[in-house]
Each structure stands twice: as structure tokens, then as C-alpha cells.
């Protein structure tokens, strides 16, 4: 058995990122879309930490902390927007939110 190396982590992060990106494209519920976006951000985090470890540099982990702070702010705003849209329409299905023509 080979030991787990940085390549494995980066491969995993690429897979997670792809799952997140596809999810954003095909899901219709904003909360699920929201989770997919979180998945994409955390895939990037995983890559950052793994590469930081591989390069022997602390800055990868430092950047991951920045990203967590940003993601938390995004969660707050995103949930707020979803609540406000639910209050005005009693639905949050993204296909029914179509007052503005595309």
C-alpha cells in the first residue's frame, strides 16, 4: 500500500470541487445550491492545506483560515437572502423565481 501523499489529497479536492460545481448546475433548491458552493470552497481549502503541508509552508493553512471567514460571511448573507425570498413568495424553488426575464 502506498502512503497517502499530497497528490491524493489534491485529487480528492478536485473531485469534491467537481461535485460541487455540477450540483450548482443541476439543483433547483437554493439551500442545496448553497451547500454545493460550500463544497467548492472547502475543496479549495483542502487543496490549500495539502499543498501547504507538502511545500512545508504555513501560508496554506493561513489562507484556509481566511477562506473560512469569508465563507461564514457568505453563509450569513446567503441565508438572509433565501429567507427574504421565502417571505415574499412562499417558495424558494429557483425556477419559480423568474420575475426578471432571462
Amino acid at each position: 500500500m502506498d502512503p497517502i501523499t499530497a497528490t491524493h489529497y489534491i485529487g480528492l479536492s478536485a473531485i469534491l470541487f467537481a461535485i460541487g460545481a455540477v450540483g450548482v448546475g443541476i439543483k433547483r433548491n437554493p439551500i442545496v445550491i448553497f451547500m454545493c458552493i460550500e463544497l467548492m470552497l472547502n475543496a479549495a481549502n483542502l487543496a490549500l492545506v495539502a499543498m501547504g503541508k507538502h511545500l512545508g509552508s504555513i501560508s496554506g493553512q493561513m489562507m484556509a483560515i481566511f477562506v473560512m471567514a469569508v465563507a461564514a460571511a457568505e453563509v450569513a448573507i446567503g441565508l438572509g437572502i433565501i429567507v427574504s425570498i421565502f417571505r415574499s413568495r412562499e417558495t424558494i424553488d429557483i425556477d419559480e423565481v423568474n420575475l426578471l426575464k432571462l
Binding site: 467548492m40 475543496a43 479549495a44 487543496a47
Partner: peptide, 16 residues
């Protein structure tokens, strides 16, 4: 959010 997530992933690649 998708745009910024893509950008972040780009950052992580460049970092590596």
C-alpha cells in the same frame, strides 16, 4: 459565489 469559488480554486492551484 460560483465565480469566487472558481477564483479561489485558481488561487490554490497557483499556490501549489
Amino acid at each position: 459565489s460560483v465565480g469566487s469559488a472558481l477564483m479561489l480554486y485558481g488561487c490554490s492551484i497557483v499556490f501549489g
